[in-house]
Design a protein around this nucleic acid. Structure first.
Length: 843
RNA sequence: GCGGACGUGGCGAAAUCGGUAGACGCAGCGGACUUAAAAUCCGCCUUCCCCUGGAAAUGCGGGUUCAAGUCCCGCCGUCCGCACCA
């Protein structure tokens, strides 16, 4: 065996062997239990970054481990290949988005292959190819037929930089998620997917996802935002044009007798009608629209209103009139754009009432506080109804039910659920996306492209020298005949949001027939995905859309399950120290050298300020390139480092010392593998025990994705094996160690396996080897260390046979020298014995 | 503001059910080998003290318990998500 492990040579050799033997090809017909391990597929930006390496290393350990434990594993890879960056590149570099994207895919594929992931490359797909997006178009048409797609003119979020519409989920703090430009409102005809039809089920379904992080489930629940209450109408005391009623929604119909005003949004039809003849109101409405929705602004925003002079009539008392305001805190796009104001029990209403001198009468009170006046804070807790006529004495819940029942009986309202979730607007005014397969005919309206004409492919001859949608200004592409009446018609020139592409790729991975999106039977063999791994930044967008899409397919009878991902794991980021030069400019790790405890700039020798450890970003220059690292240390050291130290859900600080340490360990293992001796004889019971405990523990840790713990256990075993004297046990441990590290450092393991060879029982590829069996008898120790405590403080420890009886333990502890000295002749009042663990003496 | 997570050595972290806090790794220190260096190996490594032992210590302050990093109450801090949601 060579003295040093040579990854540069070994990595490529084993990668080629796995490739030739198609070692990681998933069989649809295997009888083994199936396991679908999936990491979120990358956007082909051009380079793999270290975060990808961490993500795919984790998935790879699980995939390889599952193979070793007898599973038929599906572990595929593909490309989320449509999107804006390709068009931006086209504009800047005068390359076609397709050429740019495909070149990026080629180089990133090569990078991934260098890491030796156990991927089934035969199933590789790219969403920008017609043999993917054509099937997506078919699914869109199915949804159109099923009534899950509709077209609507609505105010949409317009990104003025990317010149496209954005979904609600893609607007963050009033800014476009990609461009960061403040989003404008525009009225446009757009295609929508009816995600709200599944709102309730999407919330309910979260309960079944016990292998999802609570954090993600909570984020989804909040995003969907279910509110149960009463939608009802106030009569206007004087009709305005054709409008004589005002619809409002309230989650607190029980407080209806505490109402002292009604308020509408600045964009509410009544407000618009009034503003047409009231310039003061028009100015106020304009001010409301101008106000940003950014966090800081909203918080400091004063509640302001404009008294319309109109009144509404209380539904339970025709003589009770409530003033109607236009208010800046009422939003047109939530509920009905109008509220009833109950100052005593809603803080915003209270702030508003104080400013405009409106009454604030308590109608719910906890016991004993019935007569307390309303102070600075609105009361939102439980209690009994007061000052509320026929509701007096009821609980909040009973009163809600009573008001809803009466409203429904009297016909002026009904119990309703309102959702924060909006339907998913999927139209994008972009070129590099899936063409929406619809033809607009003057006579027939929008008509779906007949399925036999799919795919509707993107034209190649497009230019990006002027802003806007190249599909729309293409001379011929959009001009087609109506499939229904045959008259001249126009193709839809919008493309689908790229989140549609990632909403079903995990299904296509499992089954890729040429003539349809997927084969149901094959899909149901593999799905749902057993373990999905990716960044938490997709907690809402991608994961919600994928859950919707899967439900839509089930709704249409195409598949039999609703949840696409049984297990979800959100891994942390890879971070790095930041370095700042004296002039405040950022420096990359390559420009910095450690000198004693300080850092200096290599070029100038000037001292460097070390900043906080942050997510790697180009702007702060704290990035490391996986290619450089692999070239220096090989794939296995990088993979090992990605799994070590930090728990996978937490951020992992990249350090030069850390990767050096991993590299040293790879070599340490390599030297140890060289010490295997098939001729060695003799037992080492302690080492056997350590080995079997480690095999068991590492398996559990990998199943739980606690890779850092598995790594620690492997270090411990390595330490023990190194210290052990030669024996048959030691050789067996060395061989088993190769199997234990095989999922993490597969090239090293494969090389060692081949070197150890048949003489040591190492035949075939370690990639095809089974996980070592555990002897349960060796998991239990026959001796245990028992802690000897006096008054809860550790005074001594004794080693006793496992299962030593209580009385005997007590006797031994009392005899322990340090215990006897501490007791100093005193007799314990009480003795607590936890068998095999500790004895605590209470004096 | 609402919701959530987290807080343990110089650093990344372990501690699975309330039962020996700091496993394992990194960095550091001392030593061996070497002409020397690298590599490797051995040892030390929470703090303090009257050092064959002892005391304190898991963000801070209380509580429950024979026993608390772990459970309960109240603070402080950091990070994340949402945000005028009726």
């Amino acid at each position: 065996m060579q003295r040093r492990f040579n990854p540069l040579e070994a990595d490529a050799r084993w990668q080629q062997v796995w490739d030739e033997k198609q070692s990681f090809r998933a069989s649809d017909t295997s009888d083994k239990p199936r396991s679908y391990v999936l990491e979120m597929f990358p956007y082909p930006s051009g380079r793999i970054h270290i975060g990808h390496v961490r993500n795919y290393s984790m998935g790879d350990v699980l995939a390889r481990f599952r193979r070793m434990t007898g599973h038929e594993v599906l572990h595929p890879m593909g490309w989320d290949a449509f999107g804006m960056p390709a068009e931006n590149a086209a504009m800047e570099k005068k390359v076609h988005p397709g050429d740019w994207t495909r070149a990026n895919i080629a180089s990133m594929r090569a990078q991934l292959k260098k890491l030796g992931f156990a991927l089934d490359w035969s199933r590789e797909l790219a969403t920008c190819e017609p043999d993917y997006y054509g099937h997506e178009q078919a699914l869109f048409l199915d949804m159109l037929d099923a009534g899950l797609v509709y077209r609507k003119e609505s105010a949409v979020n317009w990104d003025p930089v990317d010149m496209t519409v954005l979904a609600n989920e893609q607007v963050i703090d009033g800014k476009g998620w990609r461009s960061g430009a403040p989003v404008e409102k525009r009225k446009l005809s757009q295609w929508f997917l009816k995600i709200t039809q599944f709102a309730d089920d999407l919330v309910e379904g979260l309960k079944s996802l016990d292998q999802w992080p609570d954090k993600v489930k909570l984020m989804q629940e909040n995003w969907i935002g279910k509110s149960v209450g009463l939608q009802f109408s106030f009569a206007l005391d004087a009709p305005l044009g054709g409008i004589d009623r005002l619809e409002v929604f309230s989650t607190r119909p029980d407080t209806i007798f505490g109402a002292s005003f009604a308020a509408i949004a600045a964009d509410h039809p009544i407000a618009l009608a009034l503003a047409a003849e009231d310039s003061e109101l028009a100015a106020f409405a304009e001010e409301c629209r101008r106000t940003g929705t950014a966090a800081a602004e909203v918080e400091t925003q004063e509640k302001k209103g404009y008294d319309t002079g109109l009144s509404v009539v209380h539904p339970f008392d025709p003589d009770w009139k409530l003033p109607l305001f236009v208010a800046n805190f009422v939003l047109m796009d939530y509920g009905t754009g109008a509220v009833m104001g109950v100052p005593a029990h809603d803080q915003r209403d209270l702030d508003f009432a104080r400013k405009y001198m409106l009454p604030a009468e308590r109608v719910v009170a906890p016991p004993g506080e019935e007569d307390q006046p309303v102070q600075a804070e609105a009361y939102t807790g439980p209690g009994r109804l007061v000052n509320s006529r026929f509701l007096d004495g009821m609980s909040v819940e009973a009163a809600k039910a009573e008001v809803i029942a009466r409203a429904e009986a009297e016909g002026w309202g009904s119990g309703t659920t309102v959702w924060r979730l909006r339907d998913w607007g999927v139209s994008r005014q972009r070129y590099w996306g899936t063409p929406i397969p619809v033809i607009h005919c003057e006579g027939c309206g929008p008509v779906g492209v007949p399925k036999e004409q799919l795919p509707v492919t993107l034209p190649e001859d497009v230019g990006f020298d002027i802003p806007g949608n190249p599909l729309d200004r293409h001379p011929s592409w959009k001009h087609v005949d109506c499939p229904t009446c045959g008259k001249a018609a126009l193709r839809e020139t919008d493309t689908l949001d790229t989140f549609a592409d990632s909403s079903w790729y995990f299904i296509r991975f499992a089954s890729q027939p040429k003539d349809r999106p997927f084969d149901r039977e094959t899909v149901e063999k593999w799905l749902p995905v057993g373990q999905y791994i990716g960044g938490v930044e997709h907690a809402i967008l991608h994961l919600l859309y994928a859950r919707f899409w899967t439900r839509a397919l089930r709704h249409m009878g195409q598949i039999g399950f609703a949840e696409p991902f049984t297990g979800l794991f959100t891994q942390g980021m890879v971070t790095h120290e930041t370095y700042k030069a004296g002039d405040g400019s950022w420096l990359s790790p390559q420009e910095v050298r450690k000198s004693g405890d300080d850092y200096v700039h290599i070029e100038s020798g000037q001292p460097i300020t070390v900043g906080r450890v942050e997510k790697m970003s180009k702007s702060k220059k704290n990035v490391v390139d996986p290619d450089d690292i692999i070239a220096q240390y090989g794939a296995d050291a990088v993979r090992w480092f990605m799994l070590s130290d930090s728990p996978p859900e937490r951020d992992l600080p990249w350090t030069e010392a850390g990767i050096e340490g991993s590299w040293r360990f790879v070599n340490r293992l390599w030297r140890l593998f060289g010490q295997v001796d098939p001729a060695a004889t003799g037992d080492d019971k302690a080492l056997d025990r350590k080995l079997h405990q480690t095999i068991d523990g590492v398996a559990r840790d990998i199943e739980a994705l606690s890779f850092n713990k598995a790594v620690a256990k492997i270090y411990e075993l390595t330490n023990a094996v190194e210290k052990a004297a030669p024996s048959a046990s030691r050789s067996a441990a060395i061989r088993a160690l190769a199997l234990l590290v095989a999922p993490m450092t597969p090239h090293l393991a494969e090389e060692a396996w081949a070197e150890m060879g048949a003489a040591n029982g190492c035949t075939g590829l370690i990639a095809d080897a089974a996980w070592p069996a555990v002897d349960p008898a060796l998991l239990v120790e026959d001796e245990v260390t028992v802690a000897c405590q006096v008054m809860g403080k550790l005074r001594d420890t004794i080693i006793v046979p496992k299962g030593t009886p209580k009385e005997e333990l007590e006797r031994l502890v009392l005899a322990a020298p340090n215990v006897a000295r501490t007791l100093d002749g005193a007799t314990p009042k009480k003795v607590i014995v936890v068998p095999d663990r500790l004895v605590n003496l209470v004096i």
